[in-house]
């Protein structure tokens, strides 16, 4: 198992019924819940890593609070968005990024 969203029925915080949203990640539709960050959507869809470091090493969430910049993605054409800070919006187009030329 990987990361997952606490099931609403089990959620002690008593959240209201989830409002589904859909974003695309590198063109592929991915389901999420309104209120999740982009990182939350990626993690709960089984993604652990989505960026490559300078050497090609895989990177995902590390600090979760906008400090480490490991989780950077491109959102609707804007490079270098911290996935852990950005609230996912329905229809967001997320693309993974690196410093390499071929993925520009």
């Amino acid at each position: 198992m990987s990361a997952r969203l606490v099931r609403r029925e089990d959620d002690a915080a008593g959240r209201r019924p989830d409002v589904p949203i859909e974003i695309t990640v590198d063109g592929v539709p991915v389901a999420g819940v309104a209120g999740q960050t982009v990182a939350g959507v990626l993690l709960t869809n089984g993604r652990r890593a989505w960026r490559r470091g300078p050497s090609g090493a895989p990177r995902g969430v590390f600090c979760g609070i906008g400090v480490c910049f490991d989780c950077l993605v491109t959102v609707n054409g804007d490079r270098d968005v911290r996935a852990c800070l950005r609230r996912a919006a329905d229809g967001d187009e997320v693309t993974t990024q690196s410093r390499a030329a071929e993925e520009s």
Binding site: V6, T37, G64
Partner: peptide, 18 residues
């Protein structure tokens, strides 16, 4: 993860990291 990340995800958007 940093411990803070695990907590932020759990408390802030109900995501468990593992």
């Amino acid at each position: 993860f940093t411990a803070g990340a695990a907590q932020a995800l759990a408390k802030g958007e109900r995501v468990v990291v593992g």
